[in-house]
Simulated scan of single mutants.
Amino acid sequence: MMQTMKDDQGKQKENGFTLLEVVLSITLLTIITVSMFGFFQQAYLFNQLNQSKTVAVSLGHNALVYLEKQDTLYSALLEHEDIRISPTLLELDEMNCKKYGLNPSVFLPIVNNVVYHMTAEIQLHQDPKLQDYLLPVRLTVHWQVKEATYETTVEGYIYNNQPTM
Rank of each mutant, 00 (worst) to 15 (best):
residue 2 M to D: 04
residue 3 Q to I: 13
residue 3 Q to V: 14
residue 4 T to M: 06
residue 4 T to D: 04
residue 5 M to P: 00
residue 6 K to I: 08
residue 6 K to N: 05
residue 8 D to R: 11
residue 8 D to P: 00
residue 8 D to N: 04
residue 10 G to Y: 06
residue 13 K to R: 05
residue 15 N to L: 05
residue 15 N to H: 08
residue 15 N to I: 08
residue 16 G to A: 13
residue 17 F to E: 04
residue 17 F to H: 02
residue 18 T to Q: 01
residue 19 L to H: 03
residue 20 L to E: 00
residue 21 E to Q: 01
residue 22 V to Y: 01
residue 23 V to Y: 00
residue 25 S to P: 00
residue 25 S to A: 06
residue 26 I to G: 04
residue 27 T to L: 03
residue 27 T to H: 01
residue 27 T to C: 02
residue 28 L to K: 01
residue 29 L to K: 05
residue 29 L to P: 12
residue 30 T to V: 10
residue 31 I to G: 03
residue 32 I to Y: 02
residue 35 S to T: 06
residue 35 S to P: 01
residue 39 F to N: 02
residue 41 Q to M: 15
residue 43 A to Q: 10
residue 43 A to V: 10
residue 45 L to I: 14
residue 45 L to G: 10
residue 46 F to C: 04
residue 49 L to Q: 11
residue 49 L to E: 14
residue 49 L to C: 07
residue 50 N to C: 03
residue 52 S to N: 12
residue 52 S to G: 08
residue 53 K to R: 10
residue 55 V to S: 05
residue 57 V to T: 02
residue 60 G to I: 08
residue 60 G to F: 05
residue 61 H to F: 13
residue 62 N to S: 11
residue 63 A to K: 03
residue 63 A to F: 04
residue 64 L to V: 09
residue 64 L to E: 07
residue 65 V to Y: 11
residue 65 V to G: 03
residue 65 V to M: 09
residue 67 L to G: 13
residue 67 L to H: 15
residue 69 K to L: 15
residue 71 D to L: 14
residue 71 D to T: 15
residue 73 L to H: 12
residue 76 A to N: 10
residue 76 A to D: 14
residue 76 A to S: 15
residue 76 A to C: 12
residue 78 L to R: 07
residue 78 L to W: 10
residue 79 E to C: 12
residue 80 H to V: 14
residue 85 I to D: 10
residue 88 T to D: 07
residue 89 L to Y: 04
residue 90 L to R: 11
residue 91 E to I: 14
residue 95 M to T: 15
residue 96 N to E: 15
residue 97 C to R: 02
residue 98 K to W: 10
residue 99 K to E: 12
residue 100 Y to T: 13
residue 102 L to F: 13
residue 102 L to K: 07
residue 102 L to G: 14
residue 103 N to H: 10
residue 105 S to I: 09
residue 106 V to Y: 09
residue 106 V to G: 07
residue 108 L to C: 13
residue 108 L to N: 13
residue 109 P to C: 08
residue 111 V to A: 02
residue 113 N to L: 12
residue 115 V to R: 11
residue 115 V to K: 11
residue 117 H to T: 13
residue 118 M to W: 06
residue 118 M to H: 13
residue 118 M to N: 11
residue 120 A to N: 15
residue 123 Q to T: 06
residue 124 L to V: 09
residue 124 L to A: 06
residue 127 D to L: 09
residue 128 P to L: 12
residue 129 K to T: 15
residue 130 L to D: 12
residue 131 Q to G: 11
residue 132 D to G: 11
residue 134 L to K: 02
residue 136 P to I: 06
residue 139 L to Y: 09
residue 141 V to W: 03
residue 142 H to S: 06
residue 142 H to D: 11
residue 142 H to L: 13
residue 145 V to P: 01
residue 145 V to Q: 05
residue 147 E to N: 14
residue 147 E to D: 13
residue 147 E to C: 11
residue 149 T to G: 04
residue 149 T to Q: 09
residue 152 T to L: 01
residue 153 T to F: 08
residue 153 T to M: 04
residue 154 V to Y: 00
residue 156 G to P: 02
residue 157 Y to M: 07
residue 158 I to T: 10
residue 158 I to V: 07
residue 161 N to W: 14
residue 162 Q to R: 15
residue 162 Q to T: 15
residue 163 P to V: 14
residue 165 M to S: 14
